[in-house]
């Protein structure tokens, strides 16, 4: 990690810079894979894009391998990881999708909603695994690569946060899929034009529609916005809290010009608190994936089961 990445400026410790460096995406100036601009858009691969690819590959291969192995069995009895997948799939189908979307359209939208859940859960969870920190330590202390060597591949991938779902662009893309799905689900259930007519109740006086139609249109955009902000903010917030508490070690070291002060604060305050918040983060990871899944199901269900 570079000196700037460590937040050292003139020997001081800049906690804000370190925290931002650990939660935000890597800079487009130093991309992991450089791709020339197409139509003026820079498609270079940054850390969060790399993480999205890694998560997609892990989810796809793990679930496909497990399910295919299960289907090839002579007796279809789930065991091991397949047991866990089956329990989660049944829970989401029976407790989230079926009550909100209804029996008729459950088979249609279950694959999408399950994909949301597994993808978001994995993307959230991978942010708690310190793979890149470990790679950095190996690079520095075993391979003896200098931290300022900008041509080293591992040094390049150390920049930026690991949690792709803490990036508003990623959650906005996921929410856009939900937004399009809401329109498709409504159109599929009632027909394209009836879906739009269903947005407002029937049989009201015409002046009421002048107020209701804009409110409903704004409401259409508010739903994906709420999905975007909630997921990204929760994932960023947890990581910032952990990093801020761990920063006490370096802040107190600098304040008292003594490493012992930093170690003392670390042992007594920072590490126990960071462990506690990390445990809380594990719950947050599950809850956020669940809430995104549930809200998507509720919004899709609202377009299908219209009640005015």
């Amino acid at each position: 990690m570079s000196a700037a990445g460590n937040g050292h400026e003139g020997g001081g410790f800049d906690a804000g810079k370190v925290i931002l460096n650990h939660v935000s995406n890597s800079s487009l100036d130093h991309p992991i894979i450089h791709i020339p601009p197409i139509f003026g858009i820079d498609f270079s691969v940054t850390k969060h894009v790399l993480m999205l690819w890694i998560v997609a590959a892990i989810v796809f291969s793990l679930v496909s391998f497990t399910v295919r192995k299960y289907l090839k069995q002579d007796r279809p009895i789930p065991s091991g990881f397949m047991n866990a997948i089956e329990a989660v799939v049944l829970f989401i189908r029976d407790s989230i999708i079926l009550p909100n979307i209804g029996k008729k359209f459950t088979p249609v939208w279950t694959p999408l909603i399950l994909t949301f859940f597994f993808f978001i859960l994995s993307a959230n969870a991978i942010g708690m695994i310190p793979v890149f920190d470990l790679l950095g330590a190996i690079n520095r202390f075993i391979l003896h690569v200098d931290a300022s060597d900008s041509h080293n591949f591992i040094n390049n991938i150390l920049h930026g946060g690991v949690t792709a779902t803490a990036n508003y662009n990623v959650t906005a893309a996921l929410a856009t899929i939900t937004f399009i799905t809401i329109i498709l689900a409504g159109s599929r259930a009632h027909g394209f034009f009836t879906h739009w007519k269903n947005l407002v109740p029937k049989g009201l006086a015409w002046p009421v529609y002048i107020i209701l139609i804009p409110i409903e249109i704004i409401g259409m955009f508010v739903k994906p916005f709420a999905l975007t902000m909630r997921l990204a903010a929760n994932m960023t917030g947890g990581h910032i809290a952990i990093l801020a508490i761990l920063s006490f070690v370096f802040i107190f070291s600098g304040l008292f010009h003594s490493a012992l002060a930093g170690i003392g604060v670390g042992v007594l305050v920072s590490v126990p608190l960071a462990v506690a918040i990390s445990a809380l983060e594990i719950i947050v990871i599950l809850v956020q994936a669940y809430v995104f899944t549930m809200l998507s199901a509720v919004f899709i269900g609202m377009a299908i089961n219209v009640h005015h």
């Binding site: 829970f91 029976d94 407790s95 989230i96 009550p99 909100n100 704004i218 409401g219 955009f221 508010v222 739903k223 916005f225 709420a226 999905l227 902000m229 909630r230 809430v291 549930m294 809200l295 199901a297 509720v298 919004f299 609202m302």
Partner: peptide, 25 residues
């Protein structure tokens, strides 16, 4: 827990939409 989950869906959507609308607009 499953029963509570089933009931919480609409309430969660309403609360998030309420906050989302205020923040967005």
């Amino acid at each position: 827990f499953q029963k509570i989950v089933r009931q919480s869906g609409p309430a969660a959507s309403a609360s998030y939409t309420l906050i989302g609308a205020i923040i967005l607009l």
